[in-house]
Computed example of a mutant assay.
Amino acid sequence: MKNKMIFLAAAICCIGYWSYLFLCFHNPVLTAVSVLVCLFLLWLLYLQMSRTERIVADFFEEINQNLDLLFNKSYESINNLNFLEETLMARINQKIVRIAEILAAERKKSAKEKMSLQSLISDISHQVKTPMTNLKMLHETIQHRDLPDAKRTELLKTMGSQLDKLDFLLTSMVKTSRLEAGLIQLKKEEKNLFNTLAAAVSGITVPADKKNIPIEVFCQDQCLLNHDPKWTAEALFNVMENAVKYSPQNSRIRVSVEKWEMYTKINISDQGRGIPEAHYGKIFQRFYREESSQAIEGIGIGLYLAREIIQKQNGYIMVQSVIGKGSTFSVFLPNAF
């Protein structure tokens, strides 16, 4: 519409110019030449405006096609767009490619979260099934059978044990899911690691005493480290608790701290049965338990939770083990803020 108005204005100006020449000079030849020149100029203007319209139309058509690729999630075709040249279309293509990369990343993240949620629901269902079945059987036995008081008391204690296991499972799963979802923000502060170790050791003192397992701690009284004391203590407690569970009576657990240049290393060594090297990666998986450990109480979430906590602080956990002699779990936490 704008181009048509420009062309109409130019035509009106030409007609006015011809009329002016004819009225002022009364020269038909000069007027005819002027008419031809103006017609030629109008023709050139028309060609230029038509060319501009085609260029603009092609430009917007290309944008439309590229946006269709984006809406249709044709990411491979989008990656083939020309965005390396110094043109306006190339700059627009750069933005389209960037948007496509963001959408693809969000799509992968969403799919990963969906798979993680499905896995979590499956794990919870599997783990809850056993104690719930046991509770149902115990309830029916107590309700429908005439039992001696001693037997009834024994079954009630068993029910209490199953309820404790169920409560521990649900509490652990809530912590894990909140950590994975980022709902729990770890607060790293420069605190004394000795106090964090003391808090972790205090939680396993009773079960260790029952098995006559002394816990030796080698750490300076003042060992400042940038970490979250509460959650780090929980992670170390989970590792130490496993050490007590899988160690024989009258054995020994050793906890030592080494200050390195970039990391602080916390070694937790036991004299337990040991872990096959092929299982080093598996033991940190959620709910993983070896066949030989099924008789020992536990649900297989402690090491998984410990690794999540340490990784949230930009640290990592390693394990070394010798079958029949014991295992050493090494926790590495960065020294820098």
Rank of each mutant, 00 (worst) to 15 (best):
I6G: 00
A32G: 09
L39K: 05
L47N: 10
Q48W: 08
M49C: 06
M49G: 06
M49P: 03
I55R: 13
A57F: 07
Q65N: 12
Q65W: 02
L67P: 02
S74Q: 15
S77M: 10
N79M: 11
N80V: 01
L81S: 02
F83M: 01
L84R: 14
E86H: 10
T87M: 02
M89K: 14
I92E: 02
Q94P: 00
K95F: 03
L103I: 11
E106V: 01
S110G: 06
K112G: 05
Q118S: 09
T130V: 10
P131H: 03
L135H: 12
L135W: 14
M137P: 00
H139Y: 11
D149C: 07
D149F: 10
R152F: 08
L155P: 06
K175W: 03
L179M: 15
E189N: 14
F194R: 15
N195L: 11
I204T: 07
D209W: 07
D209N: 12
K210H: 06
V217P: 03
Q220M: 08
K230F: 08
T232P: 00
T232E: 01
V239Q: 03
V239S: 00
M240P: 00
V244P: 03
Y246N: 08
Q249V: 05
Q249E: 10
K259I: 07
T264G: 05
Y280P: 02
G281L: 09
K282G: 00
E290V: 01
E290A: 11
Q294T: 09
Q294H: 06
A295I: 07
E297D: 15
Y304H: 15
L305W: 08
G315P: 06
M318N: 08
V319P: 03
S321E: 09
G326K: 13
S327P: 08
F332M: 11
F332P: 00
L333M: 12
A336S: 06
